[in-house]
């Protein structure tokens, strides 16, 4: 007796919010184009049961000052542009970045603290060099982040830059700056569904519309906590699809930063032979981290190695082919 298979589809009631980064001249900014993420009504890339209106995108990470702590492989691949953020942004756009993520390191190579004016100058230079929407992240200490990001938000008013990181410690200041100058925020919490939800609630209580909030669930690199990020993202995405309005923000994952911190990427000598070729290992480490996070719900992945930009974009294109 022949059997028939009925494709098992979940009936989700919720969807991920659409968030648009960047603003064109008409919209009050200066970007050549905008990038919209989110809007999906299914688990990652399950086209048979829902819509996936916008493909996930790749943001390339650049720094305001030369990143002397980066893996030699990265420095070699980028060459001189790491000493000129504008040139770096242009190069990133050329190789196919959808977004630029500018990281303000907070200090230069000599250890001198970056001033707000310097941060603003770099952001302007990068905005001038590329037509892509921007993500701007501070050094990662709440007070310094506030100081630099508030100045940036004001100077680039109307550009719909995603400002990060916005954490429980400093969300008030960053959200206020975003509200005043038509920017977005990246709400960041440490691998926890409830904390993520809570921060989104606090942000929306300040009247920042949720279509201006991205969510950073915290990225663990392959071999360094990936499984935790992976599962918390699955849980957040399930909650979003089940209709929990405070978990429906598109997710951003700092895949490049996390993978290139690890020994496997940083060190080429004195490691076990079984680790194989350094370049291949390091580059694939980043790509595999990125693809795993895309498969658990990332809408934006940030990358560091230029060679991975086309590779990951191609994979996304294939994941989008229904």
């Amino acid at each position: 007796m022949p059997v028939t298979v009925e494709i098992p589809k979940e009936k989700w009631t919720g969807s991920v919010r659409e968030v648009t980064l960047g603003a064109t001249a008409e919209q009050g900014g200066t970007r050549a184009k905008t990038v919209t993420v989110g809007g999906e009504t299914s688990l990652p890339f399950l086209h048979f049961e829902g819509k996936y209106p916008h493909p996930p995108v790749v943001a390339v990470e650049i720094h305001d000052n030369h990143p002397d702590d980066w893996s030699p492989l990265l420095l070699k691949a980028w060459g001189d542009v790491t000493r000129d953020p504008a040139a770096w942004a242009r190069k990133a756009e050329e190789i196919g970045a959808d977004l630029i993520m500018l990281r303000l390191r907070g200090v230069d190579s000599a250890g001198t603290e970056t001033t707000a004016a310097q941060a603003v100058a770099v952001v302007k230079a990068v905005l001038g060099a590329t037509g892509l929407p921007l993500i701007v992240r501070g050094p990662g200490q709440a007070e310094r982040d506030n100081e630099l990001l508030v100045a940036v938000a004001e100077a680039a008013s109307g550009e719909r830059i995603a400002l990060g990181l916005c954490e429980d410690k400093n969300y008030r200041t960053i959200v206020a700056a975003a509200l005043a100058h038509n920017q977005l925020v990246i709400a960041s919490t440490p691998i926890d569904v409830n904390l993520a939800k809570q921060l989104n609630i606090l942000i929306s209580d300040m009247n920042l519309p949720l279509d201006r909030v991205l969510m950073d669930p915290t990225t663990g690199a392959l071999g360094y906590g990936l499984e935790y990020s992976y599962s918390v993202m699955e849980r957040l995405r399930l909650a979003a699809l089940q209709g929990d309005g405070m978990t429906q923000q598109p997710m951003i994952c700092f895949a490049g930063e996390e993978s290139w911190r690890q020994k496997e990427s940083k060190v080429g000598e004195g490691v076990p032979a079984a680790w194989g070729d350094w370049y291949k290992r390091a580059v694939t480490w980043e790509a595999t981290t990125a693809i795993s996070l895309l498969n658990s719900g990332a809408d934006i992945v940030t990358l560091r190695h230029p060679d991975n930009v086309p590779v990951v974009k191609k994979a996304i294109e294939k994941l989008m082919a229904s």
Binding site: L226, D277, K280, S292
Partner: peptide
């Protein structure tokens, strides 16, 4: 077969199959 890829896939497998 490449050691670098093998190492990566085995690490990923270990991550995904770790009891949460």
């Amino acid at each position: 077969f490449d050691p670098a890829t093998a190492y990566i896939l085995l690490t990923l497998r270990l991550n995904i199959y770790t009891d949460p």
